[in-house]
Nucleic acid binder design. Structure first.
Length: 261
DNA sequence: AAGCCCGCCAACCGCCCACCA
DNA sequence: TTGGTGGGCGGTTGGCGGGCT
């Protein structure tokens, strides 16, 4: 019988049922115990991955092959990183999701040590929550525009110049972006709304709509490079400015009507 | 202190595809 | 060609814990 020593504890790893006197293999569900984890780690270390149904039986685990595979790939496999996502990782997830949608495993390939399940959970708990707050669909162009022009610039700013450069270089290296992050302009095949389109919508809104002096869209455009905006006597960076705009339900409604319906 | 609510996340489920006999 | 099997993937669920009343 082999003995595994890990975290100051020892586990026997005989490849028999956890309950030897139980002849009927009832399938266990729910959280994995430490002993189950050690059995799985031990077996995979010796025999390698794959053939999960056979592995489950041979390792004496009362689990389905799928359950063993899931546990190994998402929690026990060496190199798994856990904990909060860094700003760079969050930005990468937003960027890649705009590109590929719910292709979690594909997205996970670009985040070293992160699993598709973890990214999926992040998306559903954090990002979809924001969509719910905005009362729009997470896949709508409106929400994608918010991601691209509000959150991503904000994350970029938070990351600071150094990490932003490394993020851009990383993305460029991978061939994932081809547009200029300084202006956030989109490429011709980019389905999301480009910054010029947003500006055009804002301008149109100014012409057609609200004459109120206290709306966020009053007196907004200044300069020609669209990098900063004057609004209500305050100067906004593009991210903050659009954040401001998207908090204006009147503007959001107009934008939706003009561009997305 | 107790009950309730809600967010997070580990884990399961079902579908689909690739491979092989 | 077809049926069985294993594995991959996205969607969903349920339990736990922390915060709030």
């Amino acid at each position: 019988m082999d003995t595994i020593h890990l975290d100051g504890r020892s586990w026997s790893a005989n490849h028999q049922s956890i309950e030897d006197d139980d002849q009927v293999q009832t399938i266990r569900k729910g959280p994995w115990t430490e002993e189950e984890d050690f059995r799985l780690i031990h077996y995979v270390n010796i025999h390698g991955e794959g053939h999960w149904d056979h592995l489950a039986r041979s390792a004496g685990l009362k689990r389905t092959g799928k359950s063993c595979r899931f546990r190994w790939l998402n929690y026990l496999r060496p190199g798994i990183r856990r904990g909060n996502f860094t700003l760079q990782e969050q930005l990468l997830i937003l960027e890649l999701h705009l590109r590929w949608g719910n292709r979690w495993s594909k997205i996970a390939q670009f985040l070293n040590g992160r699993t598709d399940n973890e990214i999926k959970n992040y998306w559903r708990t954090r990002v979809q929550k924001q969509a719910k707050l905005m009362k729009c669909d997470v896949n709508s162009k409106q929400f994608q525009a918010t991601m691209r022009y509000v959150w991503m610039p904000r994350l970029g700013e938070q990351m600071g110049a150094t990490s932003s450069c490394s993020y851009n270089a990383n993305m460029m290296d991978r061939g994932l972006i081809s547009y200029d992050h300084e202006t956030r302009g989109s490429t011709a095949d980019d389905p999301a709304m480009s910054l010029p389109e947003v500006i055009s919508a804002i301008t149109s809104y100014e012409k057609e709509g609200s004459n109120s002096q206290d709306t966020p869209t009053h007196n907004i455009l200044s300069g020609s490079n669209h990098q900063s905006f004057q609004c209500c006597n305050d100067c906004f960076e593009v991210g903050d400015f659009l954040d401001h705009l998207f908090n204006d339900t009147e503007f959001v409604g107009f934008l939706q009507e003009q561009l997305f319906d």
